[in-house]
Design a protein around this nucleic acid. Sequence first.
DNA 1: GTCAGTGCAAAGACTTTGCAGAACA
DNA 2: TGTTCTGCAAAGTCTTTGCACTGAC
Lengths: 144, 144
Amino acid sequence: MESTDLRNAGLKVTLPRLKILEILESRATRHLSAEDIYKDLIQHDEDIGLATVYRVLTQFEQAGLVKRHHFEDGHAVFELDRGEHHDHMVDIESGKVVEFVSEEIERLQHQIAEKQGYDIVGHSLVLYVRPRGRAASGRRGSKP
Amino acid sequence: MESTDLRNAGLKVTLPRLKILEILESRATRHLSAEDIYKDLIQHDEDIGLATVYRVLTQFEQAGLVKRHHFEDGHAVFELDRGEHHDHMVDIESGKVVEFVSEEIERLQHQIAEKQGYDIVGHSLVLYVRPRGRAASGRRGSKP
DNA sequence: GTCAGTGCAAAGACTTTGCAGAACA
DNA sequence: TGTTCTGCAAAGTCTTTGCACTGAC
């Protein structure tokens, strides 16, 4: 089944590709960095290099199988592209990523771009959040 | 006047800092990369190293004088923080950056975060756009 | 058997850091 | 004068690339 996806993308069915696809499909965390995937492979005794992970992910991205995101932490994260567009919320304390969709925001975005004479080609919306009601890290009450 | 900003930030008033602040204030393009600023300094025969540019920008960021953004092109861009929040639209053909504000989107974002039990700490919204009505780069008509 | 794919190491882009000399207060 | 700053070069992080070998078809 995964092999079909690969063939459809014009990619040979190889072990590294299958394994990486499998990791992207099966992990609880759907947003993984190249390093995350690499470590996972190592732990499962797969002898696959980090360079290959990057190469495969880039190919998957070009084939439309995965999406690459750049949250503000320096490294890219990848997720399987299941077709349905969504935006992200990142819990800055736990690192957890929550997906959400807002038709209304999408609509407003198009409206805004249109007003300036543009068509939207893509967009990136990320909310950096913290569990409700908790104060800023290590502080109490109002600003110092 | 700029020197006051620096002193308020607890930074000594030095030539590199003044020059960099001046560039951020006076350039038509308000969103500059470290490299952009460095080149500008070189062109004006200022003998300031790239490392210093990065150091100064980081200090300015910590002092709240500038904001750092990561658009999808790999390198960070900096803009003077004038206090008023806004989001960005990047014309992928010209590289031009347009700022915009949408109270409505802001409101929706808070609503969405709240629904998940989160407070928003920060957010990043960037629209990648292309002048209206123009086909994808180098193409005509519908998809190939 | 061929050609795409892979591992490894080396290179690249962007950014940060260590240190000795220079400059602000 | 005493720190704080700066330039330079070296190191760091994340990612890509070159090359000879391996493996899919």
